[in-house]
Amino acid sequence: MKDHHLKAWLSLVETGSIRGAARSLHLSQAAITKAIRELEQDLDAPLIVRSSRGVTLTECGHQLTMRVRLAQAQFELARQDIRQLQGGKEAHVSVAVTPTIYVSLLPDVIDAFRKRMPLAELNLEEGMMPLVLPALRDGSIDFAVAAPVHQALAPEFSFEPLQTLEMIVGCRPGHPLAKATEWEQLLDCEWLMHLAPGSHHTDMVGQLQRAGIPVPQRIITTNSFGVTWNLMTRSDALLSCPAAWLSVQPYAQQVTRVPLRMPLPSITLGILSLRDTPLSLAAETMAELFRREIAAHGKKLATGG
């Protein structure tokens, strides 16, 4: 497998046809066809299905595409590292962060990062697990500061636990059940949950069911912090969230902790990355700053105190 094979393959994927790939790379269609055929022979697997409408990737073709794009991303990271070692100023970091981080520590981390790498290009994503895992696979993000259900993570991912977070039930100030102490009192309420596979709420519901504890039936499924927070603070909907949010302004003024006697399953905050895939110098610098800030604010993050 050589460089010209991979360039032909990615061009074919992006353009959707032999003709389009040839035009993009300024080569003949015969050259592209030969490169793809040699790739298939090298891998001993069919990669495309040809038709009058172009080409369609096989399952093997989709897998190759994911890995080739990741390899390209790693080559680009190597270029960035070398330029930095030679005194260059080019660097790019893409990170996904869970709401617990971006409502609390993120500004301090960015400030410290800018003092070290003021000209680096920085991209931040919301750390919802269904989006984080594919982004790690294809190299579009370097790492995530998140709280996955790490016992269920695929072997291709590496998780570095940094802090265990207490979870609470939150409601708006003045909620009719703001002083409830029993779980059963909350079952008839509307709840806000992110129920995608691997999310904390999905894991919490599963743990309650396995313990024989009834779960709420009136659930509004949400997939962003903004929507969830707006509904919780402006309606009687309840939310399971980290206690850490009670220590961050202005959020602390917008939520009240329901004093349940029953503890909720905790979550573990840490750094999630693709196993055996080294970070660039810039990304490792950012990761280390997250480690430092999380360690410095461990108690406040853990309990909100």
Score class of each variant (00 low, 15 high):
53 R>N: 14
297 H>K: 03
299 K>V: 12
197 P>S: 10
35 A>C: 06
154 A>C: 00
124 L>Y: 02
268 T>P: 08
248 V>G: 11
121 E>Y: 02
100 T>C: 15
127 G>A: 05
236 D>N: 13
50 R>M: 09
258 V>Q: 13
295 A>M: 04
147 A>N: 14
252 A>V: 04
185 Q>K: 10
60 C>G: 15
301 L>V: 05
23 R>K: 05
225 F>I: 00
35 A>G: 03
218 R>P: 06
69 R>H: 03
183 W>M: 08
69 R>L: 07
54 G>M: 01
177 L>V: 05
184 E>L: 14
84 Q>D: 02
84 Q>F: 05
169 V>Q: 08
274 L>H: 09
232 M>F: 02
72 Q>R: 08
94 S>R: 05
11 S>E: 01
112 A>Y: 05
293 E>N: 10
87 G>P: 03
34 K>S: 15
226 G>F: 12
142 D>I: 02
281 L>M: 07
116 R>N: 06
107 P>Q: 14
285 T>S: 15
239 L>R: 11
114 R>M: 07
208 L>A: 06
297 H>R: 14
1 M>I: 03
43 L>K: 04
79 R>E: 12
76 E>K: 01
292 R>Q: 11
36 I>Y: 01
67 R>K: 12
248 V>L: 08
34 K>D: 14
253 Q>G: 11
93 V>Y: 07
173 P>T: 06
88 G>P: 10
298 G>V: 04
289 L>D: 09
115 K>H: 14
179 K>T: 15
252 A>D: 10
232 M>N: 02
77 L>Y: 10
263 P>S: 00
199 S>N: 10
256 T>C: 11
51 S>G: 15
39 L>D: 03
98 T>W: 05
